[in-house]
Simulated scan of single mutants.
Amino acid sequence: MKTLLLAASMLMTLACKRDSVAPSASNNTQSASVHTEATPKELIICDQKNARIIMVDVANNNTVTWEWKATASYAMIRSGAQGWFSNLSEAKLVYNGSYILATASGGGVALISVSSKKAIWYDYAGGNTHSAELLPNGNVVTASTTGGYLMIFTVDSYINDNSAQTAPISFQDVHNVVWDHSRQLLYAAGKDKLKVFSYNNSCDAPALTLKKTYTMPEGDAHDLFPVYGSTTDLWLTNSGHIYKFNVTTGAFTLVKTTSAVKSVDAGPSGYANIMAQANGVGGETWRTDRILDLSGNIVYQNASIGLYKARWRVVNTFSYPTGDKFHECTHP
């Protein structure tokens, strides 16, 4: 009996360690989860070929640990709106890892509970929606490439596909959008421009104000995402390059010359810097079946998928406050 009790105690201790958080040793880095050998090392993948978002544990035989489809009953998306989620284009972990903010080229945007897989809010942004971002009052801003515009939605978990929204905010070929929690600014890039906006944090009349515009070294901006562990740098990709953009100096630093990178990401110690680089899998020129590190080594590969973007399943404290919990303007 003592042996059994001791074993149970050790298991409980290990479980607690998996959820513990250690503060960063430097003011210039984000806090990071403590990672033990037992901790999953998961990718969040937009698998367009199979119309789903999946999480894959690359430290455990590439096991699929989670799957979401707009057509599944658990998603609670009405049948007439399910087509909005064709060609899923972005899946960001938000609210301290409890939700995923997803977009699709079909025009859909959704806030999905990881535990229940229910889309607690969704709507239609249109225009080949490529990205979305969570704003500090719970509203969501989307980036649509066709027609070139940003749009702010008032998130109301009691109202789906009929949310209050702003008029389109013109931005040619905009492909991305990132919030900076520390500076309370929004960044987005399209063509050869990276723009910085402030947000009025209004529930009744949300609005963005353009503060600054940077000209990129080359055009065709695609991915924009915080560099894990940095309070100043964003990954930025275009048709032939990967950069780091410093939000305080405005400098673009070339990291790698390479083509067709749809997403780039990093994680804590032991996590590779990864990229999703289109290789035309299945005849779709913008998809791939693998995730590479920045040296070109395969981190994950699955011939049965056609993925677009991938992120590590780690909390993003560049964009959101530590311990951030779900909230909305309409029901605080």
Results as ranks from 00 to 15, higher is better:
S9P: 05
L11W: 04
T13E: 04
L14E: 06
A15Y: 12
V21D: 02
A22L: 14
P23S: 10
V34Y: 07
T36Q: 09
E42M: 05
Q48F: 03
R52K: 15
V56R: 01
V64C: 07
V64H: 04
V64R: 11
S73L: 12
A75S: 15
I77W: 11
G80I: 10
A81D: 15
G83W: 03
F85S: 04
F85W: 05
N87K: 13
N87Q: 14
E90C: 13
E90K: 13
E90N: 13
V109D: 01
V109F: 12
K117N: 09
K117F: 04
K117D: 01
A119W: 05
I120T: 07
G126N: 13
N128M: 12
N128Y: 10
S131A: 14
G138E: 07
V141D: 00
T145E: 15
N160S: 10
S170C: 04
N176P: 03
D180H: 09
H181C: 06
H181S: 05
S182R: 10
L186I: 06
F197V: 05
S198T: 12
N200K: 02
C203T: 06
P206W: 09
T209R: 11
K212C: 06
T213C: 03
G219F: 08
H222M: 02
H222Y: 11
D223T: 11
Y228E: 06
G229N: 09
T231Q: 06
T232W: 00
T232A: 07
D233G: 01
L236R: 09
G240W: 11
G240E: 14
H241Q: 11
N246W: 02
V247R: 10
G250V: 06
T257E: 10
K262G: 08
A278G: 08
E284D: 12
L292D: 03
S295P: 00
G306T: 01
G306K: 05
N316S: 11
F318I: 04
P321C: 05
T322E: 14
K325H: 08
